[in-house]
Design a protein around this nucleic acid. Structure first.
Length: 777
DNA sequence: GCTATAACTTAGAACTTAAAAT
DNA sequence: ATTTTAAGTTCTAAGTTATAGC
C-alpha cells in the first residue's frame, strides 16, 4: 500500500482538531434545519409528479396503522385511568358508608355506641390524610435535606398521590371490640359460681367452656366459631351489625369465673398488618453524595423511615444516626447481594442456547425494557415512549424438533417459527421506528465467529485487487458519464478516508446524519490552495451516531475539478452525488470483486493500517510495556482513520488537573533536588573527602530518579490528552483482523492477554487458534 | 429500476468492576 | 483502608447490505 494513500500528514494533523468537534455539533443544527425544509419541498414535488398509487396507499396504510396503535395505547391508558378512578370512588363510597352506618345505628339505640366506634372512621380519614401529608412532606423535607448533606429525593415531576389500595385504609369491616351488653347494665351482673379448678376437673372445665362457647354461638344464631372463614384479603366475612343485634337481644346470667380465668369465649379476626411498602414513583430519585442512586424497594423504604423523621430532633443525635446508617446500609447491601445472585441465576438459565451440539452464549437474552427513547444527536423522536414488549409481540425461532419455550403464564407468543436461514432466536418489532429487534448469539459463538472470519477474508481478497480497483476509479474520473464520475469520486473518498457508504434516510425519522453517498454540497468546502497545499477539500458533517467528521484533505486535481463540477448550480442542501446511491455503488463493487461492498474498504484499510503501523512502530529491543505502547499507537492510528470518537470522560478535566498538579509538584521536587546536588557539589569541591563525594553521588541519583518520574508523568499526560476523544475499542473489535494482533504478539513475545481481555479473547478464539507469528494480512 | 424491510454489523454511552494511587 | 481512575460489560441505537415485491 502506498504510504500517501492513507494517513498522510494532513489527516493526522486534522485529527488533532477533533478536540472541538463535539462542541461543534450545534453548528450543524441550523444547517440541518434548512436541509429539512428543503427536503420536504423536494419530496412534495416528487410526490406530485409521481402520484404512484401503491406508494400512496402504502403510506396511508402505514399512517393508519400508526394511528391505530396510537389509539390503542391511548385508549388502554384511558381505560386504566378510568378503572383507577372507579376504584377510588368505590373506596370513597365505602368509607362514607362506614361513616354513616354507625349514625343510623345510633338512631335505634339497640346497641349502644362504644367509644371506639365513632372514632374509628375518623381515624381512618386521619390516617389517609396523614399518608398524603407524609409523602408531600417527604418530598419537601427530602429536598430540604440536601443542605443537611444527607440524602434527598428530587422533586417529583408529577405529584403522585399515594396509591391507596386499602393498604392504608382500614379493613373493610370495622373491628369493634366485642362487647357484651352487660356493660350497660352492670347492676344485673351476677357471675356464676364456679369453684377453682383442679387438675382432675380440668377436662370437665374444658367441656364446660366449650359448652358456654357453643351456647354463645347458639345465642347468636351462628355456627360455632363465628368468623372462621378467612378470606385472602385478610378479612373475615361476617356481619358485625348482625352479631351486635343478636348480642343485644340476648339476656343471660353473668357468672363469676374461677380465679385466673378471664373468659370462656373469645373470637376475633386477628391482627392487621402494617401496609406493604408502596415504592416511591420513578421520578423521585435518591441522591447519595450528590449522585443519583437506585435503591431497592426495601432500602428505599428504610430511607423513608429516616426521611419521615427529619424534622425530629432524634435525627440530630449521633447515636440515632449512626445506628440508622449502619442498619440501613446493611439492609441494602444484603439486597444488592440478592439482586446480583438473581442476575447470575437468570444468566445461567436464559443466557445460553443449544445450537448444533454446542452450548452457546446468547448476546442479549433480556428483552429491552420500556422507557423513554433516547436517540443519538438531534433525534426527532427523542423522549418518545418505548412501549413494554409483551409475549404477544414476540416471535420465537427454533428448530422443529426443539422444545418451544413456554410463554409466561396467561400469555402466548405472537408466532413460533422454524427458520434455519437466519441466526436469531427471538424477534419483536419496536414501536419507535417500527424496526425489528433480535436476540442473537454472543460474538464468541461459532456462528458469529465464522462470519467474522469471513469478513476479514473478504478484506484480504480486496488487498489482492485493490491496486487494480484504484486504477479503475482513477480512470473513471475522466468518464463522459456523470454517474460514473460521481461513483469514482465517492469510491475514492471511501477508500482514502474510510468513509461509510451513506444510505439515504427517511426524513424526520432519524437524526440528520450522512455518509459518503449522502453527502450534501454544504458538507464540503473546496480550497484551490490552503496552508501551502493545493486542492484541499474540507469535510464537515455529522456521521453515524451524530459524530462529527472534520477533515481537511488535499486531493488529486482531477477529483477537485470533478467536485467543482458536481457542485455547479446546486444549493447547499442538494446532494453532492446526485446520480449515486449505495445500491448503485455496491452493485458496481460487486462487479469488481465478488463480495465487495463499500464497508469492505473500511475493514481493509483499518487492518492494513494496523499491520503497517505495527511494522513501523515496533522497536525490536524495547521491553514489553514499550511494545504495548506501540501497539496502542498503531491502534490509535486506525481509530483516527475511522473517526472513532468518544465524548471526553466527565471527569476528564478534573483528572487532567490532578495530573498537572502532580507534575508541578514533581517539578518542584526536582528543583529542590537539583539545588541540593549543587550545594553538595560545592561542598565536595571544598572538602574533597570520600563522604561528601558519596553524598554527591546519591544526590545525583535522586535527581535522575525524579527526572524519570517527571518524564513518565508528562508522557502520561500527553497520552491521555491525545486519547481524550478517541475510542480505540470499536476498531479493535470490528475492524482489525485479530490474526494481525495474534501474530504480532507471538512474534514479539507479548502475552496475548496484554492486548485482548477475556471477552475479546473469547470473541477472537478462532484467530488465536489460527494465526502463527508470520501471518500476513 | 424503486421501495420496503429483514437481517445482520457497528457504535458510543452508561453502567459495573477491578486496579492503582493515596 | 479509602478514594480515584481505568478497564470491562451491557445496552441498544444506528448503520450496511441483501432481497422481495412491485
Amino acid at each position: 500500500m502506498s504510504g500517501d494513500h492513507l494517513h498522510n500528514d494532513s489527516q493526522i494533523e486534522a485529527d488533532f482538531r477533533l478536540n472541538d468537534s463535539h462542541k461543534h455539533k450545534d453548528k450543524h443544527k441550523d444547517r440541518e434545519h434548512r436541509h429539512k425544509e428543503h427536503k420536504k419541498d423536494k419530496e412534495k414535488d416528487r410526490e406530485k409528479s409521481k402520484h404512484s398509487n401503491s406508494e400512496h396507499k402504502d403510506s396511508e396504510k402505514k399512517h393508519k396503522e400508526k394511528e391505530k396503535t396510537k389509539h390503542k395505547d391511548g385508549s388502554s391508558e384511558k381505560h386504566k385511568d378510568k378503572h383507577k378512578d372507579r376504584d377510588k370512588e368505590k373506596r370513597k363510597e365505602e368509607k362514607d358508608g362506614k361513616l354513616k352506618k354507625p349514625k343510623n345505628k345510633d338512631k335505634d339505640k339497640k346497641v349502644p355506641e362504644p367509644d371506639g366506634k365513632k372514632k374509628k372512621p375518623k381515624k381512618e380519614e386521619e390516617q389517609k390524610w396523614k399518608c398524603i401529608f407524609t409523602l408531600d412532606y417527604l418530598m419537601q423535607t427530602l429536598q430540604h435535606s440536601l443542605t443537611n448533606n444527607l440524602f434527598l429525593f428530587s422533586p417529583p415531576r408529577i405529584k403522585d398521590e399515594p396509591e391507596d389500595d386499602g393498604y392504608f385504609a382500614p379493613p373493610k369491616e370495622d373491628i369493634k371490640p366485642l362487647k357484651r351488653p352487660r356493660d350497660e347494665d352492670d347492676a344485673d351482673y351476677k357471675p356464676k359460681k364456679i369453684k377453682t379448678e383442679d387438675i382432675k376437673k380440668e377436662k370437665k372445665r374444658k367441656l364446660e367452656e366449650e359448652e358456654v362457647s357453643k351456647e354463645t354461638s347458639a345465642l347468636l344464631g351462628l355456627e360455632f366459631g363465628i368468623g372462621t372463614t378467612f378470606e385472602a384479603n385478610g378479612f373475615r366475612e361476617f356481619n358485625w351489625s348482625v352479631v351486635e343485634e343478636k348480642l343485644a337481644c340476648v339476656q343471660w346470667e353473668e357468672e363469676r369465673y374461677p380465679e385466673g380465668i378471664k373468659w370462656k369465649f373469645l373470637e376475633h379476626k386477628g391482627p392487621v398488618f402494617a401496609p406493604p411498602y408502596e415504592p416511591l414513583p420513578e421520578s423521585v430519585k435518591f441522591y447519595y453524595d450528590g449522585k443519583v442512586m437506585k435503591l431497592s424497594p426495601k432500602a428505599e423504604e428504610v430511607a423513608t423511615f429516616f426521611a419521615k423523621m427529619l424534622d425530629h430532633e432524634y435525627t440530630t443525635k449521633e447515636i440515632f444516626r449512626k445506628n440508622f446508617f449502619k442498619d440501613w446500609f446493611e439492609y441494602f447491601l444484603a439486597v444488592f447481594q440478592k439482586i446480583k445472585e438473581e442476575n447470575e441465576k437468570l444468566l445461567k438459565e436464559y443466557g445460553f442456547c443449544i445450537m448444533d451440539n454446542h452450548k452457546e452464549r446468547i448476546a442479549n437474552f433480556k428483552i429491552e425494557p420500556p422507557g423513554l427513547f433516547r436517540g443519538r444527536g438531534n433525534h426527532p423522536k427523542m423522549g418518545m415512549l418505548k412501549r413494554r414488549i409483551m409475549p404477544e409481540d414476540i416471535i420465537i425461532n427454533c428448530s422443529k424438533d426443539a422444545k418451544v419455550p413456554s410463554p409466561p403464564p396467561g400469555h402466548k407468543w405472537k408466532e413460533v417459527r422454524h427458520d434455519n436461514k437466519v441466526t436469531w432466536l427471538v424477534s419483536w418489532t419496536e414501536n419507535i421506528q417500527g424496526s425489528i429487534k433480535y436476540i442473537m448469539l454472543n460474538p464468541s459463538s461459532r456462528i458469529k465467529g465464522e462470519k467474522d472470519w469471513q469478513k476479514y477474508e473478504t478484506a484480504r481478497r480486496l488487498k489482492k485487487c485493490v491496486d487494480k480497483i484504484r486504477n479503475q476509479y482513477r480512470e473513471d474520473w475522466k468518464s463522459k458519464e456523470m454517474k460514473v464520475r460521481q461513483r469514482a469520486v465517492a469510491l475514492y473518498f471511501i477508500d482514502k478516508l474510510a468513509l461509510r457508504a451513506g444510505n439515504e434516510k427517511e426524513e424526520g425519522e432519524t437524526a440528520d446524519t450522512v455518509g459518503c453517498c449522502s453527502l450534501r454540497v454544504e458538507h464540503i468546502n473546496l480550497y484551490p490552495e490552503l496552508d501551502g497545499q493545493e486542492y484541499v477539500v474540507e469535510f464537515d458533517f455529522l456521521g453515524k451516531d451524530s459524530i462529527r467528521y472534520y477533515n481537511k484533505v488535499p486531493v488529486e486535481k482531477r477529483v477537485f475539478k470533478n467536485l467543482q463540477l458536481f457542485m455547479e448550480n446546486k444549493q447547499p442542501e442538494d446532494d453532492l452525488f446526485d446520480r449515486l446511491n449505495t445500491a448503485i455503488l455496491n452493485k458496481h463493487l460487486q462487479d469488481l470483486m465478488e463480495g465487495l461492498t463499500a464497508k469492505v474498504f473500511r475493514t481493509y484499510n483499518a487492518s492494513i493500517t494496523l499491520q503497517q503501523q505495527l511494522k513501523e512502530l515496533t522497536a525490536p529491543d524495547e521491553n514489553i510495556p514499550a511494545k504495548i505502547l506501540s501497539y496502542n499507537r498503531a491502534n490509535r492510528a486506525v481509530a483516527i482513520l475511522c473517526n472513532h470518537q468518544r465524548a471526553p470522560p466527565k471527569t476528564f478535566e478534573k483528572s487532567m488537573m490532578n495530573l498537572q498538579s502532580k507534575i508541578d509538584a514533581k517539578k518542584e521536587q526536582l528543583a529542590d533536588a537539583r539545588r541540593d546536588l549543587k550545594s553538595a557539589k560545592a561542598d565536595a569541591k571544598v572538602m574533597k573527602d570520600a563522604k561528601t563525594k558519596k553524598v554527591v553521588e546519591s544526590k545525583k541519583k535522586a535527581v535522575q530518579r525524579l527526572e524519570e518520574q517527571l518524564m513518565k508523568l508528562e508522557v502520561q499526560a500527553t497520552d491521555r490528552e491525545e486519547n481524550k476523544q478517541i475510542a480505540l475499542g470499536t476498531s479493535k473489535l470490528n475492524y482489525l483482523d485479530p490474526r494481525i494482533s495474534v501474530a504480532w504478539c507471538k512474534k514479539w513475545g507479548v502475552p496475548i492477554e496484554k492486548i485482548y481481555n477475556k471477552t475479546q479473547r473469547e470473541k477472537f478464539a478462532w484467530a488465536i487458534d489460527m494465526a502463527d507469528e508470520d501471518y500476513e494480512f
